[in-house]
Design a binder for these strands. Structure first.
Length: 421
DNA sequence: TCTGGGGTCCTAGGACCC
DNA sequence: TCTGGGGTCCTAGGACCC
């Protein structure tokens, strides 16, 4: 029995999500912007053909985009997150050995029996996903994750119809010499240029180089890539583990110097981060709070963060908000124009572990029950239905992200406006 | 005017222990 | 008097990913 890795990748995912609910966007150039409408983070094929680069600041391309009638959307994460879940749930119908690698990608591990054809299998997956969710996907196959990644890039080329199988040695020999080192998964520009300095410019050359030499030169991560290119599995399917850290941060739409407004933003981020933490059934052992001025401005800069330990692991939003607020008191400096703030919940451990503090007070049950009620109400009636009383605003405020081009939350809309208790 | 947000893993070096 | 050396844990920083 032969084991193969299959990488399923949603095509231009955020654009495809917008197109599912607005078919008039099909065959037109479309881009989706990052938070605060800052950068271009997704492009339709038509937008790629116009040479609009990934990650480009929107304001620099705005005139060009208008001139070419490119449709622009602010990022709509509730929609993309929900569509992602639909795609991943559909994939799990095919294969339980599945790793959700990112919002728009998943690896499947496929045990090939002698008589079975992988072509039929992946074609069925591709056709089912578009039928069930409306999202087009590309599928790459290889004996390792690294080769499946390369296959996936090839699948996206025009003449391959979204499927490419790189499992045969002959095919690998044919293909790898035309893959630049920088385009291999795990090799960025920096490592790519270091490899070029020793005469390794393509995937075939890296595959055929000495693993020991590569390890000495760039470390164990790149050594593993050498083996993966040879078809030796070093990176297996990862089971979905709870996150060890959870971060929530945003750039503000306007610069902020008022400490109370900064606190208000941090509190909203804390509420979101704590929800995510409870959702994966974990508690934080410490938190990190940070403030940043705008690094692109010439004015005075102040970037500072502070780590605060918790005496006992905690998943209750209330005490964490209090700590976050006093952390702001300690790092805030008046007179600076802050552009971004955030919180990280660190060293998350399972909520099932009952760890005693110095005095042996570990009864979480009261707060757990309270949080359970809060979370279930928010899930049922929409985010912010019930929250800590500090959140005073209703609707838009002077710091939350700019989203001028936002589409509807087609799949997760609630009728009720947020209430404050 | 405007420049995202959220993660993971690895390594080197220091502290500490026996 | 002799002042070694290996193991482990922790942390900060660097690299990568989408």
């Amino acid at each position: 029995m032969n084991t193969l890795f299959i990488l399923v990748d949603c095509n231009n995912f955020y654009v495809s999500c917008e197109r599912v609910f607005n078919p008039s966007l099909i065959n037109k150039p479309v881009v989706v912007l990052s938070n605060n409408d800052g950068c271009i983070i997704a492009r339709s094929n038509e937008a790629k053909l116009l040479n609009i680069p990934m990650g480009a600041p929107f304001h620099i391309y705005k005139d060009f985009i208008n001139a070419h009638k490119v449709k622009v959307y602010s990022s709509n994460y509730p929609l993309y997150g929900d569509m992602s879940n639909r795609v991943m749930n559909s994939l799990s119908e095919f294969n339980s050995d599945l790793e959700v690698y990112s919002i728009d990608e998943a690896f499947l591990k496929y045990k090939q029996k002698k008589e079975s054809s992988i072509e039929c299998y992946i074609l069925k997956i591709k056709e089912s996903i578009i039928k069930w969710t409306g999202i087009p996907v590309s599928i790459g196959v290889g004996p390792t994750k690294t080769l499946a990644k390369i296959a996936n890039v090839l699948a996206k080329k025009n003449n391959h119809h979204g499927i490419f199988d790189l499992s045969s040695k002959i095919k690998q020999d044919e293909i790898l010499k035309d893959v630049n080192v920088e385009n291999i998964w795990g090799i960025s520009k920096r490592w790519g240029s270091k490899l070029r300095m020793i005469g390794i410019g393509n995937a075939q050359q890296l595959r055929d180089s000495s693993p020991r030499r590569i390890r000495q030169y760039l470390g164990v991560v790149v050594e593993r890539i050498v083996y993966e290119l040879r078809g030796v599995v070093c990176l297996d399917i990862n089971e979905i583990l709870p996150k060890k850290n959870i971060m929530c941060s945003r750039s503000f739409s306007n610069l902020i110097s008022d400490k109370n407004i900064l606190k208000q933003s941090i509190m909203e981020y804390t509420i979101r981060a704590c929800e995510k933490m409870r959702n994966q059934n974990t508690r934080a052992q410490s938190i990190y709070i940070f403030l940043q001025t705008n690094k692109f401005n010439k004015g005075r800069q102040h970037n500072e963060g502070i780590m605060v330990g918790l005496n006992i692991p905690c998943s209750d939003t209330g005490p964490i908000i209090k700590l976050a607020s006093s952390a702001i008191d300690r790092i805030y400096k008046p007179g600076y124009l802050y552009q971004k703030a955030g919180i990280m919940l660190l060293d998350l451990i399972s909520a099932n572990i009952n760890q005693h503090d110095f005095f042996g007070n570990t009864n979480h049950s009261l707060s757990d029950n309270r949080m359970k009620v809060v979370d279930s109400l928010n899930k049922k009636f929409g985010p912010g239905t019930i929250s800590n009383g500090i959140l005073k605003y209703k609707g838009k405020n002077e710091w939350s992200s700019k989203k001028y081009y936002l589409s509807n939350r087609y799949t997760t809309q609630w009728d009720e406006l947020p209430h404050v208790i």
